[in-house]
Design a protein around this nucleic acid. Structure first.
Lengths: 348, 348
DNA sequence: AGCCAGCCGTGAACCGGTAAAGTGCCGATT
DNA sequence: AATCGGCACTTTACCGGTTCACGGCTGGCT
């Protein structure tokens, strides 16, 4: 259990000790460790040897303080923690981010906030205090109140969402409008005329975009049986919305969901009501995750590599921090992956 | 789009400017902002007013550097990022942690690492560099190699896992052995004699504990039809294990899974093989999440409030950091929540 | 020889706070 | 009157790096 601690346990080795051991000044050690000219190869090697012997590596906090960018990227998510646990999307998204951050030896600073004002204050604290080198912004609303203070701050940031929502921040986005249109056209082609959509909160930017595209496409196809329900993205609300849709007199023969967890919940409701999928009702998920492949029948989905999306966001952020990137970047449009949960309606 | 920036945009206000505006020294501002005696109420108010006017708040990085605890808690998870996205457990766990951290205005520093050596090095960097005030340790193995270097470091840390595994670190744990025994006894009481368990990697501490308890309880009940399969916790492996179990000649009539995602996958496999749940095979999940309630039939589970577990871990860590807590803390044993997926075997 | 250019490396000033010792003043005690 | 304790600040010395102006030494060129 007890260990031959290399030095006194918990002692923090500093650059000064390394310098002393190598017989040079602090400055020289700093130069060596930052690969900058001004130290000969021989001295450089002596310094590295000393550092190795003492087990020293530069103190990030001190580095940050003297004007350097932190190797930390911030992500604030605004919602009650209870809900977060239920969203496969975020976990997948975060894992994609982490994948890229790890390549750069960076970590992700995650923080839940209660409201957008708290979020704005947090960015200010993070940036002024040099806690982070940049941030990832998610869940844009129409005329998002975070934008003005954030712009004033001048912190490198990458937004997730359509450029029309992100107030000039470089963003990474998928073409939700086309995807929503494709979903509707596919179901219509199968013969469905009464199609419903169980969406996210209407204030949320991407939900709004999908809702508009859904409605426009239905109109374009001359279908007036479209109905949309706004929810808070959690399974129980998806179940409730599905139940109420399926109980209505002219019930839809197809339902499109805004995420996978609500679609899974919807499938359970159909089973519980004795309706067969896809004969009585077709179900189409969004944000395809492994979940969709694990149900029976497996769920058709607007499939979207969320992990890669997160990775792309992280890469873009590094570009912004280094000043090599501006503007927005689009990742592939979610594509329809038909599985067992969609088919022609029974009496087509 | 452009905003009346309060000062030059991006400018960092410092304590010195606040001090100057309030007509006092830096020290006085520091005292005031840390609620320490030594400044009169009137001066204190003048200082706060000045800070408000300049929009100043203390720079965390600088604070950390001068011997203060960081308002950041570290969590390193060792596995490929791809997998992380699939584990509802972690998202729920992290959300519980965040809940408590947010109360203390702290953030969570999340980092994926490839192996345990990298993880140990990371802790050292985090602690020496004062990046974090403490850390949460997860996924203990037997004779975990992270323990010795971590002890030498002296960083406040809380471990997740049975005290026998965590090498003396204060830990938070659930009684997996009792829970596993309860699961077996329950299924045996229903009349099952051939019970299988689809577990996690055998090297992992809590999987080992459950495996041992499973075996011991089977023996105790005089059942020799027990079989265990070790997997990597992901849905696909759960599906494969289930398929192979259900194809064997003396196939089990009940299967216990080590997490919920594998149980959901198992249910899909049963459906795909035309077996009815629970008549042909009973399924029992672990780490109950909303997922279990969303399938049809809903999955019986060894139910366990993972969110609360995470919160308890975070609270314990604060106790350790403040020096008010030592030793381990047990959270409630997972309790059996029977739903539709367990019942007596067909020919009982 | 004399001069300048480069390379190596030093030393001190900073980054923005905290902590502990020091100062001046005031009222109470002996 | 001299001593003392305490309050309300100020001063100064860090925390552990980075940065940059400067100086010594070497070598090449005229």
């Amino acid at each position: 259990m007890s260990v031959p601690a290399p030095r006194a346990p918990g002692r923090r080795v500093t650059i000064t000790e390394v310098a002393a051991l190598a017989g040079v000044s602090k400055g020289a050690v700093s130069l060596a460790f930052n690969n900058r000219p001004g130290v000969s190869a021989a001295t450089r090697e002596r310094i590295f040897a000393a550092a190795r012997e003492l087990g020293w590596s530069p103190n990030q906090t001190a580095r940050n303080l003297s004007g350097r960018r932190a190797g930390i990227v911030g992500l604030a998510i605004c919602r009650p923690a209870r809900l977060l646990g239920l969203e496969p999307f975020y976990m997948e998204f975060v894992s994609g981010i982490e994948d890229v951050l790890a390549e750069h030896s960076c970590s992700l600073l995650l923080r839940l906030v209660r409201d957008l004002a708290e979020e704005s204050a947090l960015y200010q604290e993070w940036w002024r205090g040099r806690t982070v080198g940049g941030a990832i912004l998610v869940d844009f609303h129409r005329d998002d109140p975070r934008i003005p203070p954030l712009r004033a701050l001048g912190m490198p940031a990458v937004a997730v969402g359509h450029p029309s929502l992100t107030g000039g921040f470089p963003s990474v986005w998928t073409d939700d409008a086309s995807a929503a249109a494709e979903a509707v056209r596919y179901l219509a082609a199968l013969g469905h005329r009464r199609i419903a959509r169980v969406g996210g909160p209407s204030g949320l930017g991407h939900s709004g975009i999908r809702a508009a595209a859904f409605e426009a496409t239905m109109a374009e196809l001359g279908l007036d049986g479209g109905r949309q329900v706004a929810t808070g993205f959690v399974g129980e609300e998806g179940a409730r919305a599905t139940r109420s849709l399926l109980m209505s007199p002219d019930r839809p023969t197809a339902i499109v969901y805004d995420n996978d967890i609500m679609a899974v919940a919807g499938a359970a409701v159909a089973a519980e009501m004795g309706l067969s999928v896809p004969d009585d009702v077709s179900l189409l998920a969004w944000d395809d995750s492994q979940l969709c492949r694990l149900t029976h029948p497996p769920l058709s989905a607007m499939s979207h590599d969320v992990h890669r999306f997160g990775a792309e966001v992280a890469r873009t952020l590094f570009g912004v921090i280094e000043g090599t990137h501006r503007g927005s970047r689009q990742v592939p449009t979610p594509s329809l992956t038909p599985r067992g949960s969609t088919g022609p309606p029974r009496r087509a």
